[in-house]
Each structure stands twice: as structure tokens, then as C-alpha cells.
Nucleic acid binder design. Structure first.
Lengths: 115, 115
DNA sequence: AAGATGCTTAGCCGTTTGGCTAACTGATTT
DNA sequence: AAATCAGTTAGCCAAACGGCTAAGCATCTT
């Protein structure tokens, strides 16, 4: 389940904006139409819609239009590439610590054996 | 341990670039000087340094200069705000599912009681 | 003392981002 | 049929981004 090269870019970039994160937080509590979503934000609708589109582009959100209203909902598994990257990063780091630990252990053994 | 408002912004934005993520991946295996780090990247040094500075600005990385070389190292706990946000987000989502679950359970009970 | 090395600063450039207004389309309501 | 409502498109704008070159400034090295 490998991810396309730029996917992490668009994901992280999409999350790097407070408005967009707020939208996601709101959507975690359930779907909403665009104007419902836009309500709390002091922003013209076209600007706001841009954010929704960006979230959609990153695959974090899905939208569907029926009649004249468009409803937006969270895409459940969309965060996993991000989580995976963070986890890998942590694994790398811990791997490094492990190796440092090994090294120190070996060092102490050598000293104990008499130099 | 609350985080300043814009901290998540700078963090996510810093992670939203492949060069910068690659730098972090490299650094997880241990500190390095700027030119060592820059080696694999087909990029002029000033451009590259810009990325390091951005990582430093986000608090993901620490640098120190001795003599004419500057060494860069990972800041261990720096990812935690990001992880926290993702966890909260997931908690929200699951909370919502729980409530949905409750709702369905209640619904079925009512039906079982005979409408 | 001279030269090479390792950044660093300054300044330019094109693209993207995040905001706006004005005007338009299509559905619903009255 | 007219008015309203929910998005949408188009176009503008300033600031930020990501890249570059050229030149400067300290160390080391020779």
C-alpha cells in the first residue's frame, strides 16, 4: 500500500492551514453543507470554498451535490499516510537510539574486560 | 501543555515539502553538517539552507555552529503536537461513531419493544 | 600570507496561496 | 413568473514559497 510521491505533500500542506483544520474538526462530528460549514468563518464564500476544494484535492474530504446544496464529509482513512510517515520517522529515531544503546553496552563490556 | 495557535501551521507546513521531509529522515539516523546534508540534493546551497532554516523555525531541528561548520540535529519531541492533533481528530471521529452506535442500538431496542 | 572551505547575505524571478468583489447558474420558494 | 438561495466562475491583488546567482565573511589548511 505505497503512496504516490506527492501525496504526503498535498496532505501536509492541506493540514497546514488553521481554517482547513477547523473544517476537518467540524466534519469529524458529521457531514455538513458548504454554507453550514462556512458559517463560523469570517470569510467570503468563494475563499471558503477554495479551502474545501483543497481538502478535497488532498483526499481528506468528499463532496456531493444534490439540488443546489453540496454536502461535505470526512474521508475516514485519509490520515493514514500521514500517521504512517510519522510512525516510520519515529521508528527510525528509535532504531538509532537502539543502536546507540548497543554501542554503549558494548563499550562498557569492553571496559569491564579491562582495556 | 497547550500549544501556541500557529505552531501546528508551521509544523504541518514544514512537513509539506519533500526536501524537508527527506532532511528529517536523514537526520533521524544522526546529526550532520549542512554540506553533508545538502550532498544528495540537486539544489544550490542557499536554497537548501532555506529549508534547514524553515525546519529550525518550526522547532523540528536544532543547529549549532562551531568554527565554520554548522551541525544540524533532530529535536526529539518535536512531532508530538502533530501526533496529538491527529489523535484528537481520531478521537472525535470515533466519538462520533460511538454515538452513532448508541443511536442504532437504541433504535433496535425500540423496534424490539414493538412499535 | 594565500587559498580553499563552509556557510551566509542580498537580491532577483516565476508560481502558488489566500483573500477579495462582481457577476452568473441552477434549484427552490413564494 | 419572480424572487431568493446555494454555489460557482472569473479576475484581481498582496504576500509567501522555492528556486537561482553573485558576492561576502569567517575559518581552516598549506
Amino acid at each position: 500500500m505505497n503512496l504516490s510521491p506527492g501525496q504526503l505533500d498535498t496532505l501536509f500542506q492541506a493540514l497546514g492551514d488553521p481554517t482547513r483544520r477547523a473544517i476537518l474538526e467540524r466534519l469529524a462530528r458529521g457531514p455538513a453543507t458548504v454554507t453550514e460549514l462556512a458559517g463560523p468563518f469570517d470569510m467570503a464564500l468563494p475563499s471558503f470554498l477554495g479551502h474545501v476544494r483543497r481538502l478535497e484535492g488532498a483526499g481528506l474530504v468528499e463532496t456531493s451535490k444534490q439540488g443546489r446544496t453540496r454536502t461535505v464529509k470526512l474521508v475516514p482513512g485519509a490520515f493514514t499516510p500521514v500517521r504512517s510517515w510519522l510512525d516510520e520517522q519515529r521508528a527510525l529515531w528509535e532504531g538509532r537510539l537502539d543502536r546507540l544503546d548497543d554501542y554503549l553496552t558494548r563499550l562498557m563490556k569492553e571496559r569491564a574486560d579491562g582495556s
